[in-house]
Amino acid sequence: MFPPSTTAHLLASNSAPDGIESNVARSYIAGLEYQRAALENTIALQMHHHAHLVRFIQDHKLILAPIRRLPTELLAEIFKVAAREASAWGCLPGRLPPRTLIRVCRRWADVALGTPSLWSRAYLNLDDMGVREEAVTMTQLLHQRSGNTPLTIRIYQFKAPRQSLPIVPNVALAVLNVALAHCDRWQHVEFRSSETSPLLY
């Protein structure tokens, strides 16, 4: 409720307020402005509380998400499908499915690390500088985590040296040396390059 106004009678006329009425009106307006500011502050606090409450509710709904109840075996199968469907050609190593999955949560990391077949594919685009820099490390990691599963290794480079990004010397040869140490597990190995850009330069 608004406080009573002693100048409200002037609202129904075009009469000019006298000096006292002007001062009273200014004081009354100042009081109302103070109330408005206080009300806006209260509304802002309530809106902030509302937004926090909504986020809190949404976060706790995740506790009931069906994926949390999936058996480990089924979750592993989903991961395998994701790995097969991912277009790894030209993809930065850090974005390949297995290395992405282990960053989600501890359970997903445990499942991914406990599923050797997720780590049995190495697709390396050596035209990509980001891939070249991590190629050897990633190949070693995949061999370590893939257990005894058959390996699929694909390496390609089509851009000529003068066209491609800065070159890491002998990276293809280094990757091949790592792969050769596990050649007894090779299921599919593919090396592709152009005549002007041999892999083993």
Results as ranks from 00 to 15, higher is better:
residue 58 Q to T: 06
residue 122 A to F: 15
residue 166 P to V: 11
residue 132 R to V: 12
residue 37 A to M: 13
residue 108 W to T: 05
residue 158 F to K: 00
residue 187 Q to V: 00
residue 62 L to P: 03
residue 179 A to F: 07
residue 38 A to G: 00
residue 4 P to Y: 06
residue 107 R to I: 07
residue 195 E to I: 14
residue 133 E to G: 00
residue 141 L to N: 07
residue 184 D to Y: 03
residue 48 H to F: 07
residue 18 D to S: 06
residue 175 V to A: 09
residue 136 V to H: 00
residue 57 I to Q: 13
residue 120 S to D: 01
residue 137 T to A: 15
residue 95 R to S: 09
residue 56 F to D: 14
residue 11 L to S: 10
residue 116 P to E: 05
residue 54 V to F: 04
residue 29 I to Y: 11
residue 174 A to L: 12
residue 137 T to L: 14
residue 12 A to P: 00
residue 79 F to K: 07
residue 79 F to T: 04
residue 194 S to M: 08
residue 44 A to M: 01
residue 146 S to G: 11
residue 158 F to P: 03
residue 23 N to W: 04
residue 158 F to V: 15
residue 122 A to I: 15
residue 170 N to Q: 15
residue 110 D to T: 06
residue 124 L to Q: 03
residue 145 R to N: 08
residue 97 P to I: 06
residue 40 E to A: 09
residue 117 S to E: 14
residue 119 W to R: 08
residue 155 I to Q: 12
residue 110 D to R: 13
residue 122 A to P: 14
residue 48 H to W: 03
residue 134 E to S: 12
residue 195 E to S: 13
residue 119 W to I: 09
residue 197 S to I: 08
residue 129 M to D: 13
residue 157 Q to Y: 05
residue 190 E to V: 08
residue 126 L to N: 08
residue 70 L to E: 04
residue 98 P to K: 04
residue 198 P to V: 05
residue 146 S to C: 05
residue 119 W to P: 08
residue 107 R to H: 09
residue 183 C to V: 05
residue 91 C to R: 12
residue 7 T to W: 11
residue 137 T to P: 00
residue 64 L to S: 14
residue 93 P to E: 09
residue 66 P to R: 01
residue 34 Y to L: 13
residue 25 A to Q: 12
residue 179 A to C: 13
residue 132 R to H: 02
residue 158 F to N: 06
residue 154 R to W: 10
residue 36 R to E: 02
residue 201 Y to F: 02
residue 61 K to C: 08
residue 180 L to T: 08
residue 72 T to G: 01
residue 143 H to Q: 05
residue 113 L to S: 05
residue 43 I to C: 07
residue 185 R to N: 05
residue 20 I to Y: 10
residue 132 R to W: 02
residue 120 S to C: 10
residue 192 R to F: 09
residue 143 H to Y: 01
residue 143 H to F: 14
residue 113 L to I: 14
residue 41 N to H: 06
residue 1 M to Y: 09
residue 165 L to H: 11
residue 196 T to I: 10
residue 48 H to S: 14
residue 195 E to V: 14
residue 121 R to W: 07
residue 70 L to Y: 04
residue 19 G to L: 09
residue 171 V to N: 11
residue 117 S to P: 01
residue 188 H to W: 09
residue 41 N to Q: 09
residue 175 V to M: 09
residue 169 P to M: 11
residue 102 I to P: 04
residue 166 P to N: 11
residue 118 L to T: 04
residue 108 W to Y: 03
residue 199 L to F: 06
residue 87 S to M: 05
residue 148 N to K: 02
residue 14 N to D: 06
residue 139 T to Q: 07
residue 12 A to C: 01
residue 101 L to V: 11
residue 143 H to W: 02
residue 162 R to C: 06
residue 112 A to H: 02
residue 83 A to C: 14
residue 147 G to Y: 06
residue 152 T to L: 09
residue 26 R to T: 04
